[in-house]
Amino acid sequence: MVDASSAFQDSLPVSSDDLLARMRAAGLDFEFYEHIPLRTVEDAKTVQGGAVPAGDGRIDIKNFYLRDRKKRNHLVVLEQDREVDLKALGAQMGVAGLSFGSAERLMEFLGVRPGAVSPLAMVNGAGAGVQLWMDAAVRDAGFVHAHPLVNDRTVAIRPADLVALLEEWGADLAWLEL
């Protein structure tokens, strides 16, 4: 069975290895960690402070691929413990009828499988018209932990470097003050 781990990265539009090579070629300084596959925030908490360092201004995130009533695609990146009310979130974003996108649309628009969603999926999403929304807490962190298109790897990257990378890809980024 195909899952979101690096074992199946070659079936993605952009492999995790290719993304990491692109990040290195761009001169980005980031930390790289391999660990068990993480499908949920609860799974992620089992490796935080162990396989993936914690503290020092680091922020762990959760990511939602959403569609609105007008069938527009949104990637929402929040601090991992942030409570989410989709109706209130939609109001802040200025969109109505937010719902979770299907696994098929997730692959079509972001090029990843469930469990591996992250802002780094905008390497595919920017060209597919996905709107990126990020929690302002991400901007203010020392490092952001994100999956590089698979869920058994994590990179720690400075927010300014992440934003520069997203801008290079042409991502449409908006900040959420929650």
Score class of each variant (00 low, 15 high):
A136M: 11
D18I: 04
F143G: 07
L106W: 01
A54Y: 08
R39M: 10
A128S: 14
R69S: 14
L98C: 06
S6Y: 02
L162E: 06
R153I: 06
Q80H: 15
G111S: 09
D3P: 05
A156E: 00
P148R: 00
D152G: 02
F32K: 07
V144T: 10
R39E: 11
A88E: 15
V163A: 12
V150E: 08
V84L: 14
R105W: 07
G94A: 07
A156M: 00
L28F: 09
E79I: 04
F109S: 08
V84R: 05
G127Q: 06
V41F: 02
R24N: 08
V150T: 13
S11P: 07
A4I: 01
V155N: 01
A26I: 01
V52G: 04
L28K: 07
I36N: 09
T154N: 11
K62V: 04
E167M: 09
F143I: 13
N151F: 06
P13E: 05
M1G: 15
R24I: 02
L110W: 01
E34R: 13
A44T: 12
L19F: 03
V41L: 02
F32E: 11
R139L: 15
L120N: 02
A116I: 04
S102E: 11
A160H: 12
N151R: 03
A44M: 12
L75K: 04
M134C: 12
E108V: 11
V117D: 01
G90L: 07
V76M: 05
G142M: 03
L173P: 00
E34N: 06
V138H: 01
L166Y: 03
V77G: 02
S118K: 00
V117M: 13
E177M: 10
D68V: 10
D56M: 08
